[in-house]
Design a protein around this nucleic acid. Structure first.
Lengths: 156, 156
DNA sequence: CGAAAATAGTTTCCGATGAAATCATTATTG
DNA sequence: CAATAATGATTTCATCGGAAACTATTTTCG
């Protein structure tokens, strides 16, 4: 690209000078985009799934049974996203629901055999992406990164 | 919340068993949401700015002059977002544009005095949030977190 | 018991976002 | 030096996601 703009002298550093690239939330956003695009690419292109569908199916996995509200709790998604994920995954036959005897407003969800087939293929691919993302880090660095991210989150 | 679903035995760990909470991209998403909401809260509630407006104004700062394409490059936003940011910031009188003698399709953008006033108030508040977010970490940990995030991003 | 409040989940509506189409200008090349 | 291709930027259009409204059921309590 051409560099048309004559950028002014940055040594004249007024109080409102600000380097976006050194700004922690900006770095976080770049980092997040990099990671989430890598994963979304797999479940998106392989199975045409959207993020909230992938998350929902992954939580139900092979054996878990949850109500929609419990899925909300488990996934850090809101109830609208969960509701839509349930609708689309049900339509594809990847999850099943039965009524909840304890509460008629709710229902109990689990993966179907078909849904588990999808997971069986998808999860190794996803794990591979996770590993590729972290390939440049030692095992100690990976643990440290997770620990530090966790510390930032819980600290509020 | 009630725990309606009788969760099945997790010791029976089939290949498709998968713990979303231990999944690195999921942790990254939770981390990102935490950080970006904290910052967006400041420029959003104080000045009714949207993320791409804040980023654009911050890059222009007190002294920089950029074309829209250079802003795209600097901000990791796409050109649509930059175009809209320019439109809304111009309308508020926070940035100014003049024609680019080198290329009539483009223009040169810089902050206005009014825009710099906003930045002067906003940046200390933003810095405070950045600091609060990292309050639980030592200086060494902060550096290490940034370093590790950078390593994950560049490694591709 | 039965009316009102609370709760689980779904649907509607609106704003945000990005891909593709478009417009205006500049570069290329026959 | 046209005609075409390429480029910078904006606009349009379709999709996504969340707040608020809504439906159905359950709980509370007079």
């Amino acid at each position: 690209m051409t560099t048309d703009a004559a950028h002014l002298d940055t040594s004249k550093c007024e109080p409102e000078e600000f380097d976006l690239h050194a700004f922690f939330p900006y770095q976080t956003r770049v980092f997040y985009k990099h990671v989430s695009e890598a994963v979304a690419c797999v479940y998106g292109t392989e199975y045409g799934m959207k993020p909230y569908e992938w998350r929902t199916l992954a939580i139900l996995g092979a054996a878990n049974v949850y109500t929609p509200a419990e899925l909300v709790e488990q996934s850090s998604m809101d109830k609208v996203a969960v509701s839509r994920a349930i609708a689309s995954l049900s339509k594809r036959g990847w999850i099943l629901s039965r009524s909840n005897k304890n509460d008629g407003r709710s229902r109990l969800l689990r993966s179907s055999a078909k849904g588990r087939e999808v997971l069986k293929k998808l999860i190794p691919m996803i794990r591979q992406v996770e590993d590729d993302l972290l390939a440049g880090l030692t095992e100690a660095e990976r643990l440290e990164l997770r620990r530090l991210m966790g510390k930032v989150v819980q600290k509020s």
